[in-house]
Write a protein that binds this DNA or RNA. Structure first.
Lengths: 338, 338
DNA sequence: CTGAAAGCGCTTACAG
DNA sequence: CTGAAAGCGCTTACAG
């Protein structure tokens, strides 16, 4: 039986140096002769020495751990992000702790408390709601002066953001639909408590106005009521009411999938009768039949960026000020627009 | 600025007791009077005391942390499992560390080394390959006597398993197809290096034999070659070669999705011309059009079970012996079989 | 039931 | 460049 219990004391005895010198050699402290260092490193290697995490943490008060708060890991955008974050975190010598808060602020607050007790070095949140005051878990971390980044979901003010240019994505989608001759483009809005949907909506409005098309209130629909998915109910109602529509701009792929199911039910063909465009480019958009045209986010790069910015802040390479890192959306042309 | 730096020393000073007594009171040690305990707990609460994780770990050598190794978090079965595991882990007072090894044994071994240095209390692996000798990361943990569970992917011998009765799932699928009058059921095999696919294949074979149907080698196809998805290539080849087939039993939903795309391309209707059944019941099977008939796994219960068994082992409530916890599959009848 | 003291395995001023 | 010593914040035998 045996975890590895080699300590610096063992190395000190084997090499004849003091624990102090061994510690300095292993931490690449400058004040140790090359010869001494070499002997100590060799000995450490031969004994398969692993420094005791707790002892180190107790002295330094650094855990080399960061936390990532996701609203719900079953949301299909997160796995790719998590993977990219994990690779980057590992390469920079840290460990990432995944916290699924299940859209519940109480769980988030509980986690923050627990993790502060573990001296987590920094936090990445993807849990910010539109109203800052509701983001208690983030505000608490910021108040404590612990480095912190908002990824994707942000309120724009509590901390540094790493996010998509959501309005631009809507502009790209609407421009594309216009280029295909669509003029009656309904907008299916997402959860209203998220800023990114506000931005997507504004992008839709401004792009139409820019092209001299008036906003028709009859074409502003909702894919969600609160956190409930309602597109499959709303769409038949709207269409049966006789509203003229030739395209659906959905604020998320979830809504687009619901929309296509609803249209299918009604015998309306996508894209021949009505074009549909989604947002986020989740993995299923490529597997879906017909393959879903969507506005993509560079998830992997954004995840990597969030980790890099955070660790730079932790290590003092970046000031702990509030920045806004904005990424460009990508139009994924597939089969639901014609 | 300030993380919470309240220590037992502060509580000792405020209450007038010694650090020893404070520690005993907080740890619910028996030998402390109710009155003393009450005062100490109140004081701790008023100061929002959080015990220092490192100091505690340094003494106890327990981290209250377990690790979960996933082959690749982008595989769509994992988010639901992770969520269930996380809830259970949290409720039992532990933290879970997610390790995405990206199907790379080197990353797995690196992680094990790192996590042993962090005194992780136990491991849950979903990374076991069919051949035990290849599961070095698991064997190392077992050799060290650290509690360990194999979830879903198991080799059946290295450690306790929490898994599906994969053969039974195949039996259910094949029985269902037979009940619908199908007699030419092709089997599309998954990654051959995973035991669960071996079991699924055997379930298919045995069920046909049980019904007096001979196994036709012409109907044993492959959805994967190594780790490469080849169903979209294989299926047209097989069908164009004139093999008579009325149903595809796919060893995973991934394969089923590929299969339906391939059949679509060829103008073959599902389920009217050929029925298709998948395995795993991943989230997209319900979103897909047509909705995919599949063999489901009780992922949430299995995740919870793996955590419970592991923590019981860690806490000495269960012996560290090799057990086999087997869960029943569920036939999800949807729209791809008629 | 309570306290003084040792010790877990590191790091880091302080000397030399 | 190297060593002796203190200390991080807990827990836990050992006394009383």
């Amino acid at each position: 039986m045996g975890r590895n219990n080699v300590t610096i004391k063992d190395i000190a005895q084997k090499t004849g140096f003091s624990k102090s010198t061994v510690s300095r050699a292993l931490c690449y402290d400058a004040h140790v002769s090359p010869d001494t260092r070499k002997k100590i490193l060799e000995c450490a290697k031969s004994l398969d020495f692993q420094p005791n995490y707790f002892a180190k943490g107790l002295k330094t008060q650094c855990s080399k751990t960061i936390a990532f708060f996701v609203p719900n890991i079953e949301i299909m955008i997160y796995p790719a992000i998590i993977q990219a974050m994990e690779v980057e975190t590992r390469e920079r010598g840290y460990t990432i702790l995944l916290c699924d808060i299940q859209e519940d602020k109480e769980i988030a607050k509980e986690y923050v408390k627990k993790l502060k007790g573990r001296n987590v070095d920094g936090f990445i949140f993807s849990t910010a709601l539109l109203n800052v005051e509701e983001n208690e878990e983030i505000l608490e971390v910021v108040r404590d002066g612990i480095p912190c980044v908002n990824l994707l979901r942000t309120d724009g003010v509590s901390a540094t953001s790493v996010r998509l240019d959501n309005a631009k994505g809507s502009a790209m989608g609407v421009e594309y639909l216009l280029s295909k001759g669509k003029r009656r483009i309904a907008f299916l809005q997402g959860q209203e408590y998220l800023k990114l949907y506000k931005d997507r909506y504004e992008g839709y409005v401004n792009t139409l106005l820019k092209h001299g098309i008036k906003i028709d209130p009859d074409l502003i629909w909702y894919g969600y009521r609160g956190s409930e998915r309602v597109a499959t109910k709303i769409i038949p109602e709207k269409i049966k009411s006789g509203i003229d529509v030739d395209a659906l701009f959905c604020a998320s792929d979830n809504i687009a999938v619901d929309a296509i199911h609803a249209l299918n039910e009604m015998g309306i063909k996508v894209p021949q009768d009505i074009s549909v465009i989604g947002y986020d480019n989740v993995p299923i958009s490529e597997l879906f039949i017909p393959k879903l045209t969507s506005i993509g986010q560079p998830f992997k790069e954004m995840g990597k960026k969030a980790v890099d910015v955070l660790i730079d802040m932790i290590e003092g390479k970046k000031a702990n000020t509030i920045e806004d890192y904005v990424f460009d959306p990508i139009l994924m042309v597939r089969d639901t627009v014609c």
